[in-house]
Design a protein around this nucleic acid. Sequence first.
DNA 1: GAGTCGTGGCC
DNA 2: TGGCCAAGACT
Length: 388
Amino acid sequence: MPATSAGMTLERSARGHYSGVMNSPAIAKTKRRGVAIDAAAARPALLLAWYDRHRRRLPWRPPPGEAADPYRVWLSEIMLQQTGVKTVGPYFEKFVARWPDVEAMARASLDDVLRMWAGLGYYSRARNLHACAVAVRRDHRGVFPDSEEGLRALPGIGPYTAAAIAAIAFGRRTMPVDGNIERVVSRLFAVEEPLPQAKPLIQQLATTLLGASRAGDSAQALMDLGSSICTPKKPACALCPLNDECAARGRGDQEIFPRKAPKKTGTLRRGAAFVVTRGNELLVRTRPEKGLLGGMTEVPTSDWIAAQDDKAALQQAPTVKGIARWHRKAGVVTHVFTHFPLELVVCTANVPARTRAPEGMRWVPIATLAGEAFPNLMRKVIAHGLRV
DNA sequence: GAGTCGTGGCC
DNA sequence: TGGCCAAGACT
């Protein structure tokens, strides 16, 4: 497959199809009629015209015609990585209210950022968010780089996010390709090659949808299209500005795109969690900086392994003086991570006032648990353990 | 390149 | 209701 490059000509196979791609009916029709204009050339304008009428109003988007704030674009793009618009909204508002610009965030502590991020998931994003703010202040005088390359060098900014910020905030002529755009483009061109192998091809095809200007709007148009019309299931093709151009719709099998390589699901892991109270306080610790739920707060637990023996898990209970006996709560707490499902049994105990926390652990008032950096798994565990 | 990394919503 | 999906990055 040819390398990604804007404006590159696609190779055609002997059968008259683009490599891994079906011809769009519009192109074929144009050729049969012998019309000189290439229908494909009109797509960027069709897309932008649709966007100007139907763009979503989102907290990080300025009013039409106004320049985007790179800080808000960056913050929203990080939050939106693998996370829905609806979920991100309140978090975005909370963040910009507390930290109105990148320098303010750079002055905040990592702990404060993690606490504000709690519940959003993928916590390395919060760590990189803070590191990025610090880097922009320290290495770029508080001003975001305006090139894809400069952005790409910052923590937490990969190929997609660098292109998105460059296009949306700085008007650079580049096309970020996210899950929405992959779906729209793979249907538009009926890309038969499965993901993720098809990524370079899709990047190249997506770039053909950029017009001469308004790169950021072109990208956001495709994202809005993918989110509201060209949806994974039951796409509303009748409302799509590119429906006449769409190869998949021409064949009537839109929903089979994008093709994807089958994914394997992880095996169940099990363990035990220990909810220890001291009056109105709860025993907690902080997870290691890196890895699963890195840097987040948790109650002590056993290890989580596939062939977990209940007895072995319970033997990993923390050693706290004053615990007469453990109470095993009925039922289990279940949680599904991307790569494995988890099942935790919950044991509880209460200890006398002034009992000391074991090494590496601490007591926190139950009344302030909402402000702790607990991932949702731990909120479920604690709710289960404290339930009467 | 394939694994690792959360969470909520959807049908 | 369980699998799929969502504006991916990092190793």
